[in-house]
């Protein structure tokens, strides 16, 4: 396990460095607006512009900026947003819970439905239900997530009016009780979470189904059948239990996918999560915010991977042995 953690730390460093370099490779810079005579933010005075650059440290050599960035990342000081003039740390802590709520509930729901549905479809492989579900999954997993979101928004938000159109909660509202607050948050969560669930579900379903079909063809499943075990026991205790191994490994990769999916969805639903923060920060070349957001996303994905690795060593005795060795 120690080697594994070391490899994660190395990965984290690579991610940190990329995270520093990539925004700077984008055309334009955070102070571009200040230099543009067309812009309302245009600063005429060259000295003021220089002072501004110095203030954000943009005039220093890249290597020095990198050193300051790394130091900040380690100490938790992520700097100030150039655009919003707020500490990046505060921005992140304000947005992260919303994204975690959205991706967590979508991933959980998609996994549950994908596991159960995929297992059933694999068990009845070749049946009409299996073929239908497989076809639908291929379509939904390839449909653009904003298209799915728009459809849900139009039907359930605009037409039926069951759910609010935008936001994470009702603006300017005060709640009398925790249940009331929860109800409002859940109500706002339903449509975006459903959109993300739908976009993840197809892949989850196909993954479970195809892996389980392969496992059903294994020798040990034939033996389990020859042993005269009950169908439920074959399906859940032997086939699905073994399907969990590739599934969990895949789940970590899906965590990253869920967060990128969330960028679109949060923009579409005006949801106050990280997605919108990313979207707006990239538009303004707000380096500290971009760095901070991607750093956080990278940490979340790496943590998810670490968790999945750990979970798999608990699930698969063959891996457990490898790790303890």
């Amino acid at each position: 396990m120690r080697a594994r953690i070391t490899s994660y730390l190395v990965t984290l460093w690579v991610v940190l460095t990329l995270n520093f370099l990539l925004p700077r490779l984008l055309p334009g810079d955070p102070l571009a607006a200040l230099l543009d005579p067309q812009s309302s933010d245009y600063v005429f005075d060259a000295e003021v512009r220089a002072a501004l650059e110095a203030c954000y440290g943009l005039d220093r050599p890249l290597l020095v900026q990198y050193g300051a960035y790394l130091r900040g990342a380690v100490t938790g000081d992520l700097g100030q947003s150039i655009r919003l003039n707020e500490p990046v740390g505060e921005l992140l802590t304000g947005h992260l819970p919303w994204t975690l709520l959205l991706t967590g509930s979508a991933l959980g729901l998609a996994s549950l439905v994908g596991l159960l549905g995929g297992a059933e479809a694999a068990w009845r492989r070749g049946s009409a239900a299996d073929r239908l579900l497989t076809a639908v999954s291929v379509v939904t997993s390839n449909a653009p997530v904003y298209f799915l979101g728009m459809m849900l928004l139009i039907v359930f938000g605009a037409e039926l009016g069951w759910f609010p159109l935008a936001g994470g909660r009702t603006p300017f509202s005060h709640y009398d009780s925790i249940p009331a607050a929860t109800a409002d948050v859940v109500k706002h969560l339903v449509l975006p979470a459903l959109t993300l669930t739908l976009s993840l579900l197809g892949i989850q379903f196909l993954l479970v189904r195809n892996n389980m079909v392969a496992i059903l063809g294994e020798d040990f499943m034939l033996v389990a059948r020859a042993k005269g075990l009950k169908p439920a026991r074959l399906k859940w205790r032997h086939a699905l239990r073994n399907t969990l191994l590739p599934f969990v490994a895949h789940l970590a990769a899906q965590a990253g996918l869920a967060i990128t999916g969330a960028v679109f969805i949060e923009t579409l639903f005006q949801y106050p999560g990280m997605g919108r923060l990313i979207f707006e920060a990239v538009g303004a070349r707000d380096y500290p915010v971009i760095q901070g957001v991607f750093l956080l996303v990278a940490i979340v994905v790496l943590t998810a991977n670490l968790l999945a690795d750990w979970l798999n060593t608990r699930l698969d005795p063959r891996l457990a042995e490898e790790v303890s060795r």
Binding site: D219, F220, L222, V223, R241
Partner: peptide, 15 residues
């Protein structure tokens, strides 16, 4: 009727 299958190597559930 029971059977000891040919491929004992893969006949057991690995988990």
């Amino acid at each position: 009727i029971a059977m000891a299958v040919q491929s004992a190597g893969t006949a057991f559930d690995p988990v």
